[in-house]
Amino acid sequence: MIGVAERILEVKDLKTYFPGRDELVKAVDGVSFEVYKGETFGLVGESGCGKSQTCRSILGLLKKPGRVVDGQIILDGQDITHLKEKELRKLRGKKMSVIFQEPMTSLSPVLKIKKQLMEVFDDTPMTRAEKQQRAVELLRMVGIPSPELRMEEYTFQFSGGMRQRAMIAMALGARPKLLIADEPTTALDVTIQDQIMKLINSLKQELDMSIILVTHDLGVIAQMCDRVAVMYSGLIMEMCDVVTLFASPRHPYTYALMSSLPDPANKGARLNAIQGSPPNLAHLPEGCPFWPRCTECADICKRERPEMREIAPGHSVRCHCLDKTAAYRGIIEAPQGKEA
């Protein structure tokens, strides 16, 4: 399936650095991946691993002094790495769009929902009445009851779940080909998270778009994604389809993340915590950034940064100790006929 599918986005060796007064923070340090048409691609990792900065680099929304210093971003056949803001604006909304974690901070508190939604169509020849009609349709599409009335309200009159729905309506207004969802459900309660995940999934089908889903929650990844990249310290450590990730992870970090989760079958037992904490991005350890916390660490890990290696079709891992990690068992059983 993946071999023939069309690429909507290609990121090649992306490097995004934040120069400080006397240190250089390498937020994204050589990230490559592709997103195919109609798939949901997950970026998972802990805070500070560079998943959000990767997205901001793609969108051209990096905060100063952050800068893409190397690499290429190709969206739908067009190189957008060094586009000017004016040109990027033409792409945002139509080709790519974004929803952020906290809708309250990305919506305007002083404009009515109606006004914010109608802005999406500002550079179309639509009349005011048509724009308004489209705005009502958008709100209905994301499941907001009585949209004609609700669009006259302000964001503070909306609940958290409703705000996120409005945000999604805005992001999808111009039918983008790629939606970047940066922790879209993290600020929401579980029952609302469930609703929003279902909404995003059904809209993806309806609008035939691709999604990059950024999250730290492996549960959300399991429920939403087709393929996943696990990030750590600005690098992709492991990339594969979602079933392989949960059934047979091969990177010690992926494995450690999964084994540190509480397991209902093993209630009360000590959890397999990962020792230590993530490294400072300005002072990365030499070699593999994960070695100080890694259980498989060998001498070579401390000296040389491992390269991304494809160990099976569609499954790449960045690790020196692949022979040791071959014995890893994931948290689900591999399905029949699909051995990794």
Partner: peptide
């Protein structure tokens, strides 16, 4: 509802037998 709403850590189990409408 609460126990079912938490996303299951298993990509092979995506169908939900139970959904909740509305908000608090």
């Amino acid at each position: 509802v609460l126990t079912k709403a938490a996303p299951e850590m298993n990509p092979l189990k995506r169908t939900r037998e139970y959904a909740i409408e509305g908000e608090t």
